[in-house]
């Protein structure tokens, strides 16, 4: 039986973790490799790095981090943030990333999805889609959720799948940081129309929210950041809860 995945997300800026674990005595809490290792040893099914560096020069720093992480962590690693070109993707995959997540660049030029999935295989191309509710529909936002593209989310999801995305990372901007739970409506809608896996993101505040994401939203994987970083509960607590409620997870 295929398991539902739990994915902790770490924000990395200029080579340092800026949003990460706050409760463990890591020798260097800003070290992305140590944090990734901690999570991989404590039940994470994948690790996600989101690079929020402002400048391009820091891309090399990111590449080095990915390399070091791949030496220490033997579960899949997804890297996103600021990816603009096939070259960017290649250097991350070469450094040891298993998947890359593309967001704004796909909106600027959707062909990057097609070209990269043709070249590297769709299994390593994740398209991150940030959405906000607008009356009865959802609109796609870009540039870290700051720019309204005016694109209808459902149409965009269909297009992205057609272009060759292997997976969707779906974030509700309305719910992100609110702790009110995932936006189950858009999740369910996305799962209805898509034949590729969907990672739910944005809004987790309780263990039960993970359950809802799978049960009502139909998510294949669940991504969270702060609830794990602040040890509100552990990944294993989430998994035990899901298992108790008949959702298959890797224990």
């Amino acid at each position: 039986m295929l398991k539902k995945r739990i994915i902790p997300c770490l924000d990395v800026k200029d080579g340092r973790v800026v949003k990460g674990i706050n409760f463990v005595d890591l020798i260097d809490a800003g070290n992305p490799v140590d944090q990734a290792k901690f999570y991989s040893e404590n039940g994470a099914d994948e690790i996600c790095f989101l690079d929020i560096s402002a400048s391009l020069e820091n891309r090399d720093t990111l590449i080095n981090i990915v390399k070091k992480t791949a030496e220490e962590v033997f579960i899949p690693l997804t890297v996103g943030g600021g990816i603009k070109s096939i070259d960017n993707i290649q250097s991350l995959l070469k450094a040891g990333a298993d998947k890359v997540s593309i967001n704004s660049a796909a909106i600027t030029d959707p062909n990057i999805i097609k070209n990269s999935s043709n070249y590297f295989g769709s299994q390593c191309i994740v398209v991150a889609v940030d959405v906000k509710k607008n009356e009865n529909s959802w609109l796609v936002y870009s540039h870290g959720g700051t720019k309204n593209t005016g694109i209808d989310a459902i149409e965009w999801l269909r297009k992205v799948e057609q272009l060759g995305a292997g997976e969707i990372l779906l974030t509700s901007m309305d719910r992100d940081g609110t702790k009110l739970g995932f936006d189950l409506d858009i999740l369910a809608e996305a799962n209805k129309i898509l034949g590729i896996p969907v990672i739910a993101s944005g809004g987790v505040g309780s263990i039960h929210h993970f359950y809802e994401g799978v049960k009502d939203g139909g998510a294949d994987a669940l991504l969270a950041a702060s609830v794990f970083h602040f040890n509100e509960f552990s990944i294993m607590e989430v998994k035990n809860y899901l298992k108790k409620n008949n959702i298959d997870v890797r224990i």
Partner: peptide, 14 residues
């Protein structure tokens, strides 16, 4: 065969 299953088969399986 997809049979309404998501493709690719991606993730942890026994």
């Amino acid at each position: 065969p997809s049979k309404n299953l998501k493709m690719p088969h991606m993730g942890w399986n026994s």
